[in-house]
Design a protein around this nucleic acid. Structure first.
Length: 985
DNA sequence: AATCGTACCTAT
DNA sequence: TCAGATAGGTACGATT
C-alpha cells in the first residue's frame, strides 16, 4: 500500500506500508485443525496455479500466503452461539482473492472430508478499503509515523518531498477529532486549456494544437494563490500578476507543463470538466506529438496516467458517460462532477454555474474565434490568455464558495472512504465502509452472498389519496423525522437481529413474545434487550452527527456557512437514508429485503394509524370546533385540515392543535420514532399526488415562503416561459389572492407568445440525455436532436448524461414534436421560425388548465378568445424540414409570416391599419431597436471587461446573449423594413 | 379517441 | 466490475 499525503507544514509525503496481506474468510469445517489448514492452503495453491490467467501469475508459483483459524461470527441472521471457527485465507496479491473465492465456492477436495463447497466472507472488499478498515484509517485523516519505527528512503521511487517505509502495524491513525479535526494544507492546482480548432470545427487532439494552459495554485485554507501562470504557444504579452511562459514548439510547451506539474506537486488537481475534456485532450495530444514522458503526471516515477472510458449508471443519476482517470498520488477533483452530484441545475456549463453561485456571467469565447485570436499577435493571444486564466480561476472560486474541500473531507471522514472515491463511486460504497468497520469491531463477518435474481420489487411507501382542491384554510403538516432510520432503530432491524425462517419454524431459540418483534411484513427480529443490531448503531451515530450540524447551523450567521452546514446535515441525512436503500439494493453487496420490506411496511402502518387517530380524535363529538380531515400525506407526512375558519388568526390555533396532535399520536410509537409538527400551509393548493403549492408558515405572524412541490416551477424539463408563468400565477393566487389578476396575466403571456414577443431563451427546453437514439425505444425530441447534432459535428454534440437544450420550430402539418426540435443556436443562426402554437398547445395549456381548474369556473376560456387570435400559417404538408431553413418575411402589423414576399402587411391587417401608421411604427421600431441593441451590446462589453474590443462572447446560458442576438436580427429586420417602405412609396 | 409503454423528473 | 430504494405525475409516441 502507498499512502499519499501532506504534512502539517505542507510538505508532500508518501508512506510505503509493508506487511499487510490481502485475505478473506470461509466458515471452517467442524473437523478443522492445523493440519487441515495446511492441506487446504496447499490444495488451494495448486488449484490456483492451474486457474490464474497470465496477468496474475507469480514468479514463484505461490498464491496462498497462509490459511489460519479464527473465531468469528456471521452478521447474517440472529444466532445465539458464541464465535465459531472461520478460516482466514490470505493470498499473495489482492487480485488472487477473486480466483481463490471462485475455487472455494465451486468446491475443493479435502482428504477425509471429501469435496466441500464454501460460502466466502468479505471476499468482495476492495483491497484499499480492506486495508483502511483494518488500519482504522478513514479518508482525509491524520497519520503519525512514530520515531524509530520507520525508514526514510535514500533512493526514492516518487517525487514526494518525504518518502518513508513502515510496517503496517506501526503507523498511528488519528480519529478526526479535537486537534486532528483541522484540514491539511493541501496544494490545489486548478487549470484550464485552450485549443485551436480549424475554422468552424471543434478541436480534435490528433489534428489541433493545445495553445494555452493556465494554472492557478493555492494552498487549502489560504486566501491568495501561490502561483498564477500560463503556458502559451507563440508569444504572449505580459499579464500583470501572472507569469507567462511562451513556447515556439507545442511539444516543448506540453513538456514544460508536465515539468511544472511535477515541480508544483499538487495533492488535488481541479478545473472544470477536466475529466471529460482537458486531461484526455492533453494526453491524446501528447500521444499525437509523441511527447513520451508527458503521461507521467503522478507522484510515482514512471507511473503513467491511465484513462478508461466508462459509463456510470445509477437510479439516482441516470446513465452517464465518463472517463476513469488515475494519476498516482493526486486526487482529481473535477468541479463539474462535484456540482453534477450535489446540485440539480438546468445547465451545468461553467458560465451558468458561475452565474448561479458566484453571481456573475463569464465571458464565453466560441471555439471558432479562438483560432483567430491565436493567429493574431502577442496582444490577441494575451486576450485569450486572460480568458484562459479566468477559466482556471473560476473552478477554484467555486471550490471555495461551495466549500467543496471542507464538505468532501468531512464526508470522507464520516464514511471512511478516500476523498478521491466520493466523486466517482456510489452511495453503497459509503454504507459498506461503515458497515465493515462496525462489523469488524464486533468480530462479525459479512457474507459474499450469491445474487439471487429476484425480479420482485418490494412494496414501498404509501401516498394518501389527495383530496384535491384549493384550501383557504390552514393545513397543518405533521412529519416523522428521519422516518426510515428511526424505524430501523426503534425496531432494531439489522442483518444480525433477523431470525431466519428456519430457526423460527424449529423454534430454535424459544423466544418469549417480549423478546421479538414481528414486523407488519411478517419478518421476525430480536429486540435490543436480546441483541443490539449494528445498523441501528450506525444510524444512531449518523443522526447524532446530523443533530450537531443542525445545532451549528442555528448558531451560524454567515449565509455561506449556513448553506454549508445545511448541506452537511443534508448529506448526513442522505447517508442515513442510504442505509435503508443499501438493504433494498437487489444488485448490491448485501441486500436484505426482510429489512427493507419491513421498514416500508412499518412506515405504511404508521401513516395509516396517524391518519386514523387524528381523524377519530379531533372531532366535534370530542368537543373540537370541527371534524378534522387528513387531506393528503406522502410516506412520512400527513396534512391535516382542523377547521373551516378563514381568518388569519386561525394559523395560531392550527399550530396549537397540530402540536397537541403530534403529542397525542406519539404515544403510540416506539422511540426514537417521533412525529413532529413542522409547518402550516395556508392557503394550500393541492393539485395531485406529489404536486402542491402553498404558503408555508412556521410562525403565525408572517409566512416564510411559497413552497412548491412537483409543479412545473421546480422541474427542469419545462421551458423558462412555463416556469415563470406558473410561478407568477401561483404567487398571484396564493399571496395576492387574486385569481382574476392571474387569469389576465396568463392571457397576456399567451398574447405575447403568439405575437412572437417572447425571447427564445425563455422557450428553450432542456432534457437529460440518458439513452442513445439506437437504444431509445420511442422517438424523443432531445434524443433525435442529439443524434442530428452528432451528424453536424460529432465533437460538440451532447453525450450521454448531458442536458440537451432545444426549441420547437415550425414544421409540416402533423409533424411530430421530435421532428420539430432544434438546437437554439442553430435556430438563431438560420433564422428559423419558432412554433409558438406548439408552445401554447403543448407547453402552456395543460399547466394553465390544471392550475386554474380548482379556482376558476371555466379555465378553458383562458385558451380561447381575442388574445389567442393567430392567422393560420402556411405550412407545407410535404417535404423535409430543410424546406423551412429560410428566412420568412412577416407582416408589419402582426408579424405573421407572409405568403407573398412582396407584401408588407397580411390580409388580416390590411383593412385595419393605414399604411402610414404602420410605416411610422416601423420607423419608431427601428429607433427602438437601435437603442435596445446598443444597450445590450454595452452590457456584453461590460461583462467581458472591455469597451474597446469586439464582443466575442457566445455563451448559450447568458440571457443577454440571446437578447443581443435577437436585437441584432431585429435591428437588421427593422432596417430592411424601413427600406421596403421607401421602395413601395 | 382510448390505451399502453417509455422517458424524464420529482417526492419522500 | 459497478450501480441506494419505490411511488407517481406528465408528455408523447405507438398501437388498437
Amino acid at each position: 500500500m502507498r499512502l499519499y499525503g501532506v504534512t502539517a507544514e505542507g510538505h508532500s509525503a508518501v508512506v510505503h506500508v509493508h506487511g499487510y496481506d490481502p485475505y478473506f474468510y470461509v466458515q471452517a469445517p467442524k473437523e478443522i485443525n492445523e493440519n487441515i489448514c495446511q492441506e487446504i492452503a496447499e490444495t488451494l495453491n495448486r488449484r490456483m496455479a492451474e486457474r490464474v490467467d497470465s496477468s496474475k501469475k507469480t514468479s514463484n508459483g505461490q498464491y496462498i500466503r497462509y490459511v489460519e483459524m479464527e473465531y468469528k461470527q456471521t452478521i447474517w441472521n440472529y444466532r445465539q452461539e458464541d464465535f465459531v471457527k472461520f478460516l482466514k485465507i490470505s493470498t499473495v496479491w489482492p487480485q488472487h482473492v477473486t480466483t481463490a473465492r471462485s475455487i472455494l465456492e465451486n468446491g475443493i477436495q479435502i482428504s477425509n472430508l471429501g469435496t466441500r463447497t464454501f460460502l466466502t466472507y468479505e471476499s468482495n472488499v476492495v483491497f484499499v478499503m480492506r486495508y483502511m478498515v483494518d488500519a482504522g484509517i478513514v479518508g482525509a485523516n491524520w497519520i503519525t509515523l512514530p520515531a524509530n519505527q520507520y525508514l526514510t528512503r535514500s533512493n526514492p521511487n516518487t517525487t514526494c518531498q518525504f518518502e518513508m517505509d513502515v510496517m503496517w502495524q506501526k503507523l498511528i491513525s488519528h480519529d478526526p477529532d479535537g486537534d486532528w479535526l483541522k484540514i491539511a494544507p493541501l496544494r490545489i492546482l486548478s487549470f484550464d486549456i485552450e485549443c485551436a480548432g480549424r475554422k468552424g470545427c471543434f478541436p480534435e487532439p490528433d489534428k489541433d494544437p493545445v495553445i494555452q494552459i493556465a494554472n492557478w495554485v493555492t494552498i487549502q485554507g489560504m486566501d491568495t494563490p501561490i502561483v498564477k501562470n500560463i503556458f502559451t504557444l507563440k508569444s504572449c504579452a505580459a499579464i500583470s500578476g501572472a507569469e507567462v511562459h511562451s513556447f515556439e514548439d507545442e511539444s516543448e510547451m506540453l513538456q514544460g507543463w508536465r515539468d511544472f506539474v511535477i515541480a508544483c506537486d499538487p495533492d488535488i488537481l481541479t478545473g472544470y470538466n477536466i475529466v471529460g475534456f482537458d486531461i484526455p485532450y492533453l494526453m491524446d495530444r501528447a500521444k499525437a506529438l509523441k511527447v513520451a514522458s508527458f503521461p507521467v503526471l503522478g507522484r510515482m516515477k514512471n507511473s503513467k496516467t491511465k484513462i478508461k472510458k466508462t459509463t456510470f449508471s445509477s437510479a439516482q443519476m441516470g446513465t452517464r458517460e465518463t472517463n476513469e482517470i488515475s494519476i498516482d498520488g493526486r486526487v482529481i477533483f473535477d468541479v463539474l462532477q462535484a456540482i453534477q452530484r450535489e446540485y440539480k441545475l438546468h445547465s451545468y456549463t461553467l458560465n451558468s454555474v458561475c452565474a448561479k453561485f458566484l453571481g456573475e456571467q463569464k465571458e464565453d469565447v466560441h471555439h471558432s474565434i479562438i483560432s483567430d485570436l491565436q493567429n493574431g499577435d502577442a496582444e490577441s493571444r494575451r486576450r485569450l490568455a486572460v480568458y484562459c486564466l479566468k477559466d482556471a480561476y473560476l473552478p477554484q472560486r467555486l471550490l471555495d464558495k461551495l466549500m467543496f474541500i471542507y464538505n468532501y473531507v468531512e464526508m470522507a471522514r464520516v464514511t471512511g472512504v478516500p476523498i478521491g472515491w466520493l466523486l466517482v463511486r456510489g452511495q453503497m460504497l459509503k454504507v459498506m465502509s461503515q458497515l465493515l468497520r462496525k462489523a469488524r469491531s464486533k468480530g462479525l463477518l459479512l457474507p459474499n452472498l450469491k445474487v439471487e435474481s429476484t425480479d420482485e420489487k418490494f412494496e414501498g411507501a404509501i401516498v394518501i389519496e389527495p383530496k384535491k382542491g384549493f384550501y383557504s384554510d390552514p393545513i397543518a403538516t405533521l412529519d416523522f423525522a428521519s422516518l426510515y432510520p428511526s424505524i430501523m432503530m426503534a425496531h432494531n432491524l439489522c442483518y444480525s437481529t433477523l431470525v431466519s425462517k428456519e430457526d423460527l419454524r424449529t423454534n430454535k431459540f424459544n423466544f418469549t413474545p417480549e423478546q421479538i418483534t414481528v414486523t407488519p411484513h411478517g419478518d421476525t427480529f430480536v429486540k435490543p434487550s436480546v441483541k443490539k443490531g449494528i445498523l441501528p448503531e450506525i444510524l444512531d451515530e449518523l443522526l447524532a452527527a446530523r443533530k450537531r450540524a443542525k445545532a451549528d447551523l442555528k448558531k451560524a450567521t454567515d449565509p455561506i456557512m449556513k448553506a454549508v452546514l445545511d448541506g452537511r446535515q443534508l448529506a448526513l441525512k442522505v447517508s442515513a437514508n442510504s442505509v435503508y436503500g443499501f438493504t433494498g439494493a437487489q444488485v448490491g453487496k448485501l441486500p436484505c429485503l426482510e429489512i427493507s420490506s419491513s421498514v416500508t411496511a412499518f412506515g405504511r402502518e404508521m401513516i395509516e394509524l396517524t391518519k386514523a387517530k387524528v381523524e377519530a380524535h379531533y372531532t366535534v363529538a370530542n368537543g373540537y370546533k370541527h371534524d378534522s380531515v387528513v387531506v393528503y400525506g406522502d410516506t412520512d407526512s400527513v396534512m391535516i385540515k382542523f377547521g373551516e375558519n378563514r381568518e388569519r388568526w386561525m394559523i395560531d390555533e392550527t399550530m396549537k392543535l397540530a402540536l397537541s396532535a403530534a403529542d397525542f399520536v406519539n404515544t403510540s410509537f416506539v422511540k426514537p420514532i417521533k412525529l413532529e409538527f413542522e409547518k402550516v400551509y395556508y392557503p394550500y393548493l393541492l393539485m395531485n399526488k406529489k404536486r402542491y403549492a402553498a404558503l408555508l408558515w412556521t410562525n403565525p405572524d408572517k409566512f416564510d415562503k411559497m413552497d412548491c412541490k412537483g409543479i412545473e416551477t421546480v422541474r427542469r424539463d419545462n421551458c423558462g416561459l412555463v416556469r415563470t408563468m406558473v410561478d407568477t400565477c401561483l404567487k398571484t393566487i396564493l399571496m395576492q389572492r387574486d385569481p382574476n389578476a392571474a387569469a389576465e396575466y396568463v392571457k397576456g403571456v399567451i398574447r405575447d407568445l403568439l405575437m412572437n414577443k417572447v425571447d427564445i431563451s425563455e422557450l428553450i427546453i432542456t432534457k437529460a440525455l440518458h439513452k442513445s437514439e439506437e437504444d431509445s425505444k420511442s422517438a424523443q425530441a432531445h434524443v433525435v436532436l442529439a443524434a442530428r447534432m452528432k451528424e453536424r459535428d460529432p465533437n460538440t454534440a451532447p453525450v450521454l448524461g448531458d442536458r440537451v437544450p432545444y426549441v420547437i420550430i415550425k414544421g409540416p402539418k402533423g409533424a411530430k414534436a421530435f421532428e420539430k426540435a432544434e438546437d437554439p443556436i442553430f435556430v438563431l443562426e438560420n433564422n428559423l421560425p419558432i412554433d409558438v402554437q406548439h408552445y401554447l398547445d403543448h407547453q402552456l395549456s395543460q399547466p394553465i388548465l390544471r392550475l386554474f381548474e380548482p379556482i376558476l369556473d371555466k379555465p378553458q376560456s383562458l385558451l380561447s378568445g381575442d388574445h389567442t387570435r393567430q392567422i393560420s400559417l402556411s405550412t407545407p404538408t410535404t417535404g423535409g424540414l430543410m424546406k423551412f431553413v429560410k428566412a420568412t418575411k412577416t407582416c408589419l402589423g402582426c408579424r405573421t409570416p407572409l405568403k407573398d414576399e412582396r407584401a408588407t402587411v397580411c390580409e388580416h391587417c390590411k383593412p385595419k391599419e393605414v399604411l402610414f401608421k404602420v410605416a411610422v411604427r416601423s420607423i419608431d421600431n427601428l429607433n427602438h431597436m437601435q437603442t435596445q441593441f446598443a444597450k445590450l451590446w454595452t452590457q456584453c462589453q461590460r461583462c467581458q471587461g472591455s469597451l474597446h474590443m469586439e464582443v466575442i462572447c457566445t455563451s448559450r446560458d447568458c440571457p443577454i446573449f440571446y437578447r443581443r442576438r435577437k436585437a441584432h436580427k431585429d435591428l437588421i429586420e427593422a432596417q430592411k423594413t424601413a427600406e421596403r417602405f421607401s421602395l413601395s412609396w
